[in-house]
């Protein structure tokens, strides 16, 4: 067991859940409200120095009763040690969690991917958009267990949507604001742009 687990419990007490070991890796469960503090502590405290964020991902189990977990793999380059931090979320509840981008820039795209694939929203993320799927993708969150392997829409519907897609939609609102195209936009799009709205992401349900 990685000694950081005990150190965390000593510092944050109630915010630290169980610590388990699997295949030689230590996993610490952290309360979602304390995530950012715990991560900052792990990164900056001498003796911990988990300065490298290896990966951010999420896991949803086939067992409907289990929580959806957001998984952070941390590494101390100095001490050559890894630690896995998990936050449990209710898959049927509010999937919101603090973003760790203020601590690690590298989390930017990783959190976008978790948002894209699982629908977890990261509060404080500078640019939370879908990344692998397109911005107006309306079928939901592909890596959720209730998402069928072939997608929610029929192949015919997918083709219809692709053919009807607005070519302007290939640029985000942000990009259009730079382009000459701004002046040629229809008034309603300019209005949306003025209000600072991003490409609309419909709800999965």
């Amino acid at each position: 067991m990685n000694p950081s687990a005990e150190a965390l419990r000593g510092t944050f007490a109630g915010a630290i859940g169980r610590a388990v070991e699997s295949c030689g890796d230590t996993i610490v469960y952290v309360d979602r409200a304390a995530l950012l503090d715990v991560m900052a502590w792990l990164r900056d405290t001498p003796g911990q120095q988990y300065d490298y964020l290896v990966d951010v991902t999420a896991v949803e189990y086939r067992d409907r009763e289990r929580s959806l977990e957001v998984v952070y793999n941390l590494r101390s380059l100095e001490r050559r040690t890894d630690l896995r931090v998990k936050v449990e979320l209710d898959p049927r509840g509010d999937l919101a969690i603090d973003s760790v981008v203020p601590l690690w820039q590298g989390a930017d795209w990783l959190e976008r991917e978790v948002f894209d694939m699982f629908g977890v929203t990261f509060r404080g993320h500078p640019d939370l958009r879908r990344i692998l799927m397109w911005e107006t993708y309306a079928e939901g969150y592909p890596l959720r267990k209730d998402f069928p392997l072939r997608g929610r829409f029929s192949r015919a519907e997918q083709v219809r949507q692709a053919l009807n897609a607005n070519p302007e939609a290939h640029y985000s609102m942000e990009e259009l604001s730079i382009a000459e195209a701004y002046d040629e936009l229809p008034p309603d799009m300019r209005e949306r742009l003025r209000r600072g709205e991003r490409g609309k992401i419909p709800d999965s349900e």
Binding site: M173, E174, S177, I178, L193, R194, R195, G196, E197, R198
Partner: peptide, 8 residues
């Protein structure tokens, strides 16, 4: 140049 509120 962000389209965020206030930029324009």
């Amino acid at each position: 140049l962000e389209a965020g509120v206030g930029a324009l």
